[in-house]
Design a protein around this nucleic acid. Structure first.
Length: 963
RNA sequence: GCCCCGGUAGCCCAGCGGUAGAGGCAGUGGUCUCAAACACCAUCCAGCGUGGGUUCGAAUCCCACCCGGGGCACCA
């Protein structure tokens, strides 16, 4: 496509006053320069360096903080799918400016992370060089689109002045603990307050020690159990192929790394964690404050996975007990066996020396003693990667431990198994199995010939004998049966009632209590990478951890020769991570005075994950140059503070892809809440309204071998078949990208038609939240619209204005105000596709009219301005206005003209259209009915049939029911 | 397997109880042109995924199913 000479450019060469690619390019670059030079989109702050005395009383002006999801600057350059959201937020931001809002809209770069590092390793260039080049390239590409960003606020996460605050927030989190007793639902408090409680004896030191007598190492160990950021040996996701550990959220359902698709293994390693689980309840509850798509809220709720249930102790052996978590205490009488996770600590202590008499052969796993059987099974489970465990999930495996526990309600002995379908990381790592009413337990019980007991009355026609069942019966909507003994009877109670009754009884017996359990785990926060934020943490000669004081921030990423990660064979589960930063002894060993005189310390060599920088960037957009504080409270309050419309506060609009539903959005909410608890921000949520834009897809053409061929070179034959170089190829839908050879760059489209055309086309393709295919051929439609708009106002022959000075007639006013009314609503509701259609409709009206009154021209220019700002600015100037239209009021519809003067009323007989009438929109039902019944066509159609009923819905419809 | 979202003209999409069509692309015919491209004018095209139901009336509401896209998936 790019090889052919743009036809429009040729035309422009011969017709210099015509709106073609050449004229569009000239207009666009000129206005982009003006906006930049005049700082048109600079938003004044209430306080600090970005406050503007000339802006007047900023605080009393309504604000609108509009954000795009933090882009990662890819070295590959943009395709037309990337800017979809950026154009949409720009259109909305421009509309907001024209309706009196102080608009904060900018775009920064999330520039730390794995891809940049991998790219650097591949090309041999330092990640800072490649990343900064990619950012410059992306800025250049985006500038051409005319996005109205405040350039003073465009931060980058790799800037030391930015990441010093990322490290500062880390220190806030590190130096905090979650006080469950504080406020409603608890809150984060400074760790110093906890230490004071231990010192004074107000709070008992766990383990019974005395604080003053503990060593520094012991104190730090203890505080690690409280800190919201802590370092601990935990089972983590180790990915040898990437050479780093990963958060649960970065591992796919089939046990592979989201990035790179390498196998991931469970490994016990000392790593940094964030205690996000302390916020589980608040992260769920505060979703109610947010204007987010329900689907995203649902995904967050599911990810956090709150379940209410009970902890129950099952006595085993003499004196010890296995504690299980269950959501179904109502089915306690149906618990016929138990299962421990292979890693469960109690396994060793309950295993007897020999198999009990009459132990089922299938339960022994072929071993001579229970200890052998358990050891063999554990070894087998440990060697499995998550992938294998996933693949094997359909078949239930396990072995009998040889031990029996006692069902606390039935008093019956229940065998205790070890099986990997029970996960150590959830609940207590142990379950009571109720095979009659749980699918997994049912499958296991069938495999091991375990007894089942039906305790919930089946309601689907099956008998109450589980031996005849094909699967468990797990409905909640039924009543409990077979569940009674001397002082507890659940029989006849509903499931919900029985849960409460059973929990209450257990608590009374001291063997259980109601509890809430979460699927969410603490967030693994360290990575073994070079290209990330270093931790502001050092270790002294005794290995005791010290946080650096604020004055020593930022801890800069050292400039080194060798920044490559230590990667391994992707399948080598025995390997262990090594940090790239540890190679650099000069940097690792550091002389510092942390209050005890100058001493040698070793730096923490892990780095923070990619998510760290994007967890708080909304705050820095607000106050990018603040050297004293993360954000000035006056500015935070103004832009993010809670209001009647947004009870939790947060940015007014946040647009981005749905793929960040749980990762970024959950982490950012968590950090924001910590900062709120510690008094740094007034808002409790970072993003009030979230909008997920759809994807732009593109046709992919594959040859016989299935390889993609360059989509731009494919030709369509008349009969709907496709050819490339004469060879038949197959068409399918796909993502846009280099690998599928179907990427279209925004620059190509801007070259041929101008950026305004590209913006308009992207906005008119369909609703913003729906994915839709790119069609280069269709772009010309948006171009023609702009040409017609231009022609309605400026002569193509002379470049002179052609608007008339007449007063618009009534029909024109009606068309105009109908358009204003509709477009305003569409703009406010982010329905840009229909807004464009209405603008085209009005413009087409003006074309047919033959001339355009000046007042109408001005209003249509203003209406189109958010969508196609360059041509609008140019026409506005040519219409005789000085300066930018950015802050000119958006047209307001006159209600007198916004309704049609006459409407067509349809007359139906039994739902079939028989006649039409032109009536006033103000007509009453009775008048309309009378008119309809008098209509000759209607009279004829009714004939002799009796009229049973007449439905009149003024002014559009009358339906006559006969017969 | 479970949970979301979507199926309207050849294509992208409006309409979301009341005439199936706002807008765009493509197609067809014409104007312009020596021809063509561009542009302009005109025009063709679907009964709304399928099957039931509610209603005077259903693309629109309800139920079931089919197809496409996304998410979750031994979480006790």
């Amino acid at each position: 496509m790019s090889e052919t000479t743009p036809a429009a450019a040729e035309a422009a060469a011969t017709e210099p006053f015509r709106y073609g690619a050449t004229l569009a390019a000239e207009i666009e670059s000129r206005w982009q320069d003006i906006w930049e030079k005049e700082g048109t989109f600079n938003a004044p702050n209430p306080a600090g360096a970005l406050a503007d005395p000339a802006a007047g009383d900023v605080v009393s002006k309504p604000h609108s903080f509009i954000m795009d999801m933090f882009p990662y600057p890819s070295g590959a350059g943009l395709h037309v799918g990337h800017p979809l959201g950026y154009i949409a937020t720009d259109v909305y931001a421009r509309y907001q400016r024209m309706t009196g809002h102080n608009v904060l809209h900018t775009l920064g770069y999330d520039a730390f992370g794995l891809p940049a590092e991998q790219h650097a390793v591949a090309t041999g260039q330092h990640p800072r060089i490649t990343t900064e080049a990619a950012m410059a390239n992306m800025r250049q590409q985006l500038r051409r689109l005319g996005l109205g960003h405040d350039p003073r606020r465009s931060i980058a996460t790799i800037d030391p002045e930015y990441y010093r605050w990322t490290q500062w927030i880390f220190l806030q989190i590190f130096n905090s603990w979650y006080d469950q007793e504080a406020g409603e639902g608890g809150k984060a408090r400074p760790i110093a307050e906890l230490i004071a409680q231990f010192e004074s004896g107000e709070r008992e030191v766990p383990g019974g020690g005395v604080w003053a007598e503990l060593s520094a190492a012991e104190r730090e160990e203890l505080l690690g159990e409280y800190r919201l950021a802590y370092s601990k040996e935990v089972p983590v996701n180790w990915c040898p192929g990437l050479g780093t550990v990963l958060a649960n959220e970065e591992v796919t359902a089939d046990g592979r790394s989201e990035r790179g698709n390498f196998p991931v293994f469970k490994s016990n390693l000392r790593q940094w964690m964030m205690r996000i689980t302390a916020y589980s309840d608040r992260l769920i509850a505060d979703l109610d404050l947010l204007d987010w798509p329900e689907a995203i809220k649902l995904q967050q709720r599911n990810w956090i996975g709150r379940s209410e249930g009970a902890r129950v102790d099952f006595a085993v052996g003499s004196g010890s007990a296995i504690t299980v978590f269950t959501t179904r205490p109502d089915t306690l009488f149906g618990a016929t066996y138990m299962v421990l996770a292979p890693e469960h600590a109690l396994v060793d202590s309950i295993v007897p020396a020999a198999w009990p008499a009459e132990t089922h052969e299938d339960w022994k796993g072929g071993a001579a003693t229970p200890a052998e059987a358990v050891a063999a099974y554990r070894a087998e489970a440990a060697a499995k990667s998550d992938v294998e465990r996933q693949v094997d999930a359909k078949v239930k495996t396990g072995v009998f431990t040889g031990a029996y526990a006692t069902n606390p309600v039935s008093g019956e002995p229940v065998p205790v198994f070890v099986a990997d379908y029970v996960l150590m990381g959830y609940g207590t790592g142990a379950i009571m199995a109720v095979p009659a009413h749980d699918h997994r337990d049912f499958a296991f019980a069938r495999a091991f010939a375990l007894p089942m007991r039906c305790v919930v009355q089946p309601t689907d026609g099956r008998t109450d004998d589980p031996s005849t069942w094909d699967d468990a019966f797990d409905t909640y909507d039924s009543v409990i049966v077979n569940s009674a003994h001397d002082d507890l009877s659940l029989d006849g109670l509903s499931v919900v009632e029985a849960k409460a009754a059973a929990t209450e009884w257990l608590a009374g017996q001291g063997i259980g209590e109601g509890t809430v359990n979460y699927r969410l785990r603490d967030w693994l926060f360290s990575r073994q990478r070079y290209w990330g934020e270093p931790f502001p943490i050092v270790y002294d000669a005794d290995g005791v951890m010290h946080a650096l004081p604020e004055s020593m921030l930022p801890v800069e990423v050292p400039v080194v020769e060798d920044y490559s990660p230590h990667t391994y064979d992707p399948f080598d589960s025995t390997s262990s991570p090594k940090t790239p930063l540890s190679r650099n002894e000069d940097w690792v060993n550091v002389e510092l005075d942390l209050g005890d005189g100058v001493q040698t310390y070793r730096r923490e060599t892990n780095t923070m994950p990619n998510w760290a920088g994007s967890c708080w960037y909304e705050l820095r957009y607000i106050d990018p140059a603040n050297g004293e504080k993360v954000v000035d409270p006056a500015n935070e309050q103004y832009w993010l503070g809670p209001t009647a419309q947004k009870p939790g506060g947060g940015a007014d609009l946040y647009v981005g892809g749905a793929e960040h539903a749980v990762l970024h959005l959950l982490y950012a909410r968590f950090w924001h809440k910590v900062l709120h608890d510690l008094g740094h921000v007034s808002s409790v949520e970072p993003f009030h309204k979230l909008f997920n834009q759809g994807m732009i897809t593109a046709d992919v053409y594959r040859d016989e071998r299935g390889f993609p061929v360059p989509a731009a070179e494919v030709e369509e034959s008349g009969d709907g078949r496709y050819f490339w170089n004469g060879e038949a190829v197959k068409r399918e839908a796909g993502k846009m990208g280099k690998s599928l050879k179907n990427a279209v760059a925004p620059d190509e489209i801007a070259d041929e038609y101008g950026a305004d055309t590209l913006r308009l086309y992207e906005m008119s393709m369909g609703p913003l939240d729906v994915s839709r295919p790119w069609d280069t051929r269709a772009v010309v439609g948006s171009y023609r619209f702009l040409q017609r708009l231009w022609r309605n106002i400026v002569s193509e022959a002379t470049g002179e204005l052609v608007v008339t000075e007449e007063e618009p007639d009534e029909a024109t006013l009606r068309a105009l105000h109908k358009a204003i009314d509709g477009i305003r609503g569409d703009m406010a509701g982010l329905r840009f596709n229909t807004a464009v259609a209405k603008a085209i409709e009005l413009n087409n009206f003006l074309v047919k009219r033959g001339s355009t009154p000046r007042s109408v021209a001005e209003q249509i220019v203003l209406m189109v301005a958010p969508l196609a700002p360059h041509i609008a600015e140019e026409l506005w100037r040519r219409l005789g206005h000085d300066g930018t239209l950015t802050y000119t009021d958006y047209p307001v519809a006159d209600p007198a003209y916004a309704v049609a003067e006459a409407v067509t009323c349809v007359i139906q007989i039994k739902g079939k259209v028989k006649a039409r009438l032109e009536v006033s929109p103000a007509i009453t039902d009775a008048e309309l009915e009378a008119l309809a019944m008098a209509d000759p066509a209607v009279v004829a159609a009714i004939g002799d049939a009796p009229v049973r009923k007449v439905i009149a819905r003024a002014p559009k419809l009358v339906n006559i029911v006969t017969g």
